[in-house]
Amino acid sequence: MQMTNSTFEFIEQLDCQTDIPSLINSFQSLIGKFGMACFMIGDPTRPKMQRDDRLWATTWPQDWLNHWLSQNYISVDPVINQLLARNEPILWRETRSANDDTGSKIFNEATEFHMTDGFALPIYSRDGFVVGITMGTDHYELGKQDEACLHMASIYFHAKLERLRAESAPKPRGPRLTPRERECLSWVAAGKTDWEISQILSISEQTAHEYVQNALIKLNATTRAQAVAIAIFTKQILA
């Protein structure tokens, strides 16, 4: 019951969490009460993405993390593979197989970092991809109730983490320009006048002027230079 209460306390104080590092601390401190040493949460299903997009938060020892990443274990780690394949909570030890040399190697190496066993959970993400959370320990003794607690805490942790990540992600500013407005503004950025743009694009000078003016209005800019700067900053034209 004490573990349950800790879990509910963790969930209830999530409303007060406003930044990712303290959220991670708070989750780490909760799983610590269950005897777990550290955790990792991420989205392993999109290998083409940058490392940051696949690995959202972790408290793994830095040396192990560096090794794990440099060896590209994200693609071969048996825990992650099983998580994706089975789509249900699993114990690390269930994924050990004598035939899996790479897997055995990873397990042996993890032992050096005091992780002999652990618990991993799949959580559905916003867009239907599986997000996984895995936590390790050198002394696994969780009961069913404990695992249920960690499962629920993980769901709340993950939702909050995604919300904080979305808030901190740079947002496209202001309204979007039409392709024609972008085109004209790109030429403004290249130092062209309305007349020159009209010649390049085979449109009237008046029309070229209107496209640029529209872009200014949309971007809430007072000068052409400012419009160019905003459009570059919001990635609507190339620098």
Partner: peptide, 10 residues
């Protein structure tokens, strides 16, 4: 279901 819970939390 906990899956739905996550979606609405998000």
């Amino acid at each position: 279901p906990t899956d739905l819970l996550f979606r609405y939390l998000l």
